[in-house]
Design a protein around this nucleic acid. Structure first.
Lengths: 346, 346
DNA sequence: CTGAAAGCGCTTACAG
DNA sequence: CTGAAAGCGCTTACAG
């Protein structure tokens, strides 16, 4: 059994109220008393039970972070950014992954009640009704890349549309016309936004985005790898592949190489997110930069804003811009076959 | 304010004891009463406060996971494995990173008291005395890759020595003699074990491991990258570089390429850990396989063993074997310069 | 089968 | 400056 405040009090010959006061730095404690208590605390290595403290003070010094998945560097960077921000305030993180399963989200949210002071939730896949009805009331909540137009919560959303559009325009500028995309799956907000951006860029330039060039992945390396196998089964290969995240781009590159294609001379490849490892692989990966760890930190800091200035109760909706990050995996195309021209010009 | 058990009780016209009983599935509740209470619970969307419950039941259904760092895929795989294991039991994870700082470890450990039922601690860098004196008593604790010969706690340790030795032997078999290593820094258990393994393999085969071929990194890509800049300043380049983790190997490969060297034809490179991305890069990375996510799961499952069968109080010390994972970043060397022979043969 | 009461380990008015 | 007491939201003997 751990020692409790009662043990400290009796050993120090004071009441538990006094021990509590020195613990909480109250100034209405005589210096001598304080020292005596402190001595006992150190001697016993006493530390107050945070659960009891949380129960009465209604603050836990913990923030819940609920992520859809834990695979890959994207989520680990989110966690890292969040953890740094949280540590700066002396807070801690309770991390959970939902696997995009409403039941798991519900379980995690329930678990967090009473244990966290606020919640950061990232759930690009689960639809807003389910989400909203499970969200605990009375707790600051920040929605990260969630599908919701509900303005009742603070939201942070990456500009997937703009980023994908910019990337597509870049590929178009490079002369590419047959651009295959590897998506992150249906019903996934991030994927959908990126797809929308890609299609818009094509259309804006009077090209018809062909559905036959849209392949479904799930944001993992292996799904990018497998998508390429399908892509190469096409009678006319695309000249560029735009994977909707870097992990899939990395998987795609591997598959392409296995088929003897060189990147970018035979085919260009780009990703999205700009995960740290992207700049280290060869060829270095052209991507759409997302400030991943900042995203985690931003969400946490927004939560702290809420926690401190309770007055301001207008919700904030921040839209995070992306930035094209040009490296070596994409290359200018010089000549196009007639066939391609025919197929793509509007 | 969230509703409490009192609200439910009054609305259902029963005592809080009865509500508590239906909450905990006690069988001594009349079916009709149970239904009435359940109806109210659903209507109010009531969920018990886990902090209060934890306080009295002395169990929190949370496990603390304290990691040295949050950079890169290694730690995210540990978290993933741990999270999966924990979710299987309906438990949750409280994650923290220590940055190898004793103060942060202490703060995290203090934070966890009363909030977790057990702790998994990974701290290859902080020495055992500091660690041991901060460890809470009365809580199951599993030490993951910690420097301690204390048998009072359960431990799980990767066979860094064996793995590095095996890798070095492999390089030796390939004909390499000048093998540079990039370590993970001094005072880091994992790095030290791998260094010991490398040196032992060299010595066993009657080669003297040259200190001038040992370069210091810190397990990050950039440190591998920078180490290579130093390595290439050597008057005689090594024919192989053994980075003590994959991230550094990936950084090293990038630096090597920038200097126009081809891998593995000009120089062989290998890593350690076998992080998922390693098989996707080019050339695919030869590494020492560590079952990373399993490690997280193993630690959690060990903790659950403790939690359930309190009787067995002999501590377990598991030593996790590694496995050579041969891919394409290392190549046989056919001829050696006389100079190299002179320098390396014992 | 159900309720009143004690207690988990703390904090904080309220007196003194 | 300090202590006795109430209370945070729950569970669980103990009676009935």
């Amino acid at each position: 059994m751990r020692s409790s405040i009662v043990d400290v009090a009796s050993k120090a010959g004071v009441s538990i109220a006094t021990v509590s006061r020195v613990l909480n730095g109250s100034d209405k404690v005589k210096a001598k008393t304080r020292e005596k208590v402190l001595a006992v605390i150190n001697e016993m290595k006493y530390a107050p039970n945070p659960a009891a403290r949380g129960l009465i003070m209604k603050k836990t010094e913990a923030i819940g972070l609920l992520l859809p998945d834990l695979h890959g560097e994207f989520f680990s960077e989110i966690i890292r950014g969040a953890d740094e921000a949280v540590q700066q305030q002396g807070y801690h993180l309770i991390v959970s992954s939902s696997h995009n399963d409403p039941n798991e989200i519900e379980a995690a949210l329930r678990f967090m009640r009473g244990r966290v002071d606020a919640i950061v939730l990232m759930s690009p896949q689960v639809n807003s009704e389910i989400l909203l009805e499970n969200l605990p009331k009375g707790l600051p909540i920040v929605l990260l890349n969630c599908r919701t137009d509900n303005t009742h919560y603070d939201t942070i959303v990456i500009d997937g549309y703009g980023g994908a559009k910019e990337m597509t325009n870049y590929l178009l500028d490079l002369g590419h016309r047959r651009i295959a995309v590897i998506t992150g799956g249906e019903n996934n907000l991030e994927s959908e936004e990126r797809l929308r951006g890609y299609r818009a860029a094509m259309t804006d330039r009077n090209f018809t985005p062909a559905r036959t060039l849209e392949f479904t992945g799930n944001f993992t390396e292996i799904s990018g790898y497998e998508a390429v196998k399908q892509i190469l089964a096409l009678k006319h290969h695309p000249t560029a592949i735009f994977a909707f995240n870097d992990s899939m781009a990395i998987g795609a590159i591997k598959a392409l190489r296995e088929e003897g294609l060189r990147i970018p001379s035979d085919i260009s490849v780009c990703g999205f997110d700009d995960i740290p490892v992207g700049k280290y692989i060869s060829p270095s990966l052209t991507s759409v930069h997302v400030p991943i760890s900042d995203l985690g930190a931003m969400a946490i800091n927004r939560v702290f804003d809420r926690l401190t200035k309770r007055t301001r109760d207008t919700t904030a909706h921040v839209f995070v811009p992306t930035k094209l990050c040009l490296r070596s995996s994409c290359k200018k195309i010089t000549l196009m076959s007639n066939l391609e021209k025919e197929e793509n010009v509007a």
